[in-house]
Design a protein around this nucleic acid. Structure first.
Length: 260
DNA sequence: ATGTCCTTTGAGAAAGGA
């Protein structure tokens, strides 16, 4: 079961690049972030005609997440538990019925948090605390669980081409990194780091200042695997070349293959 | 290099977010 995460930065703007990538990469499941549309505005047919089931959790103008799946989906849930007043569309989860195992997949768009310090940073850290609580509950189910999305967290200095630039940024500040580690320490595996070591591996390059051409990137899109999912891991990859194409997102897809 | 892109508002250009 090939499961990908991809922050597409607007479904309307990616109407060509996203189907092109889907046709080549052929993921069984694609978790999309920043669809930047309400549910009614999402072009479901574009994906249904390719054999995908479509579940969205949209919002006007920004945020918004979606699940595309060639396999059956059950028990779809929208929104991160823990704060009924939080109306931002940043979380969707569902159970994917694979040939040999069911996988609980969660698609997440973690708050950016800048400027830090400030209310947006407070929201980010509060959101991460809620995510930790929910991740703990998911672990308790003993299912194979995949937490995949745009984490807006640079886990370590090796995950940035120029770590000194990000030192005081909400994506790399100690509190953000510690909150990310707390989730890992529950028993999750950063799928990419289970297989690939060292620097130079990024999932985001800013549109500004020729960041892509200078390979001035950061690794902020992650797939965290519960022990039951980590045991099924057979492959992981960043589809980096997508960033060099026409009208790209500023993020690229990251995917895992699970024996499920 | 204060360097870009995407969306909304509202009807052209500017803001907010990233």
């Amino acid at each position: 079961m090939k499961i990908a995460t991809f922050n597409i930065n607007g479904i309307k703007a990616r109407a060509a690049a996203l189907p092109d990538w889907l046709d080549e990469a052929r993921p069984d499941v694609a978790l999309l972030q920043e669809i930047k549309t309400v549910d009614e505005g999402f072009p479901r047919e574009m994906f249904e005609e390719r054999g995908y089931n479509v579940e969205t959790h949209g919002q006007k103008g920004f945020n918004g997440v979606a699940i595309l799946s060639k396999l059956p989906l059950e028990d779809v849930s929208r929104g991160l538990p823990g704060d009924d007043d939080d109306t931002q569309a940043r979380w969707i989860e569902a159970t994917v019925i694979g040939e040999t195992a069911a996988v609980r997949v969660c698609g997440l768009y973690l708050p950016n948090g800048n400027p830090a310090p400030g209310p947006k940073y407070d929201y980010k850290l509060a959101w991460m605390a809620r995510m930790e609580a929910h991740a703990r509950a998911l672990l308790a189910t003993e299912m194979a669980v995949v937490l995949a999305g745009d984490y807006n967290v640079i886990p370590q200095d090796e995950d940035a081409a120029r770590p000194e630039v990000w030192q005081d940024d909400a994506l790399a500040r100690p509190e953000s990194r510690a909150a990310f580690r707390r989730i890992l320490n529950l028993g999750f595996t950063d799928a990419y780091r289970a297989r690939v070591f060292g620097g130079g591996h990024y999932s985001f390059w800013d549109y500004q200042a020729g960041a892509w051409n200078r390979n001035d990137g950061i690794r902020i899109d992650h797939l965290l695997l519960s022990p039951q999912a980590a045991d099924l891991l057979t492959d992981v990859r960043i589809d980096q070349e997508i960033r060099g194409r026409e009208k790209p997102s500023d993020h690229v897809p990251v995917w895992v293959d699970l024996a499920a």
